[in-house]
């Protein structure tokens, strides 16, 4: 190992740094690929109520959106790096609250629906790895 620090071998250190950098990049990439996920910053959160567009919000910006309809849904976009980025319904006044119990969504094409309020929250745009979701 001491060879690395010899003045005659400056390239070796650069090599190691390069390899390390590539490994880090590849690891991050591999994590994204193997999770089947799409975390592109250009993805949007698209909210519709009864089929009509309510709003489109960039997934990269943390925010809270309160949608009023027959009932009220409080939607939270948790922005940040790939591990944090997710969208969920944090609260609702609908009777069953199935939308609140729904797991947070992170992947392009995933959606959360509140049937009583006829609300749909979907991740759209960006790169899409999965064509459809079965449940």
């Amino acid at each position: 190992m001491t060879e690395i620090n010899k003045p005659g071998n400056p390239i070796r250190r650069a090599d190691i740094i390069l390899i390390a950098a590539l490994l880090i990049l590849a690891t991050i990439g591999a994590a994204l690929v193997s999770r089947g996920g799409v975390y592109a910053d250009d993805a949007d959160v698209r909210i519709t109520v009864d089929g009509a567009l309510y709003g489109v919000y960039p997934i990269g910006e943390a925010r809270e959106i309160v949608v009023q309809g027959n009932y009220e849904n409080r939607i939270v976009i948790e922005a940040g790096d790939a591990d944090v980025m997710q969208v969920r319904v944090a609260g609702a006044t609908c009777p069953g609250k199935d939308c609140v119990h729904h797991a947070p969504i992170r992947l392009g094409g995933q959606s959360i629906v509140c049937l009583p309020n006829r609300l749909s929250v979907e991740i759209t745009g960006g790169e899409r790895d999965i064509d459809a979701f079965t449940y």
């Binding site: 089947g36 119990h101 729904h102 797991a103 947070p104 992947l107 094409g109 995933q110 790895d129 999965i130 064509d131 459809a132 979701f133 079965t134 449940y135």
Partner: peptide
């Protein structure tokens, strides 16, 4: 091929 994701059926 079409790629269809299977939602995690286990409790969140």
């Amino acid at each position: 091929p079409w790629k269809v994701g299977i939602r995690n059926p286990l409790p969140a």
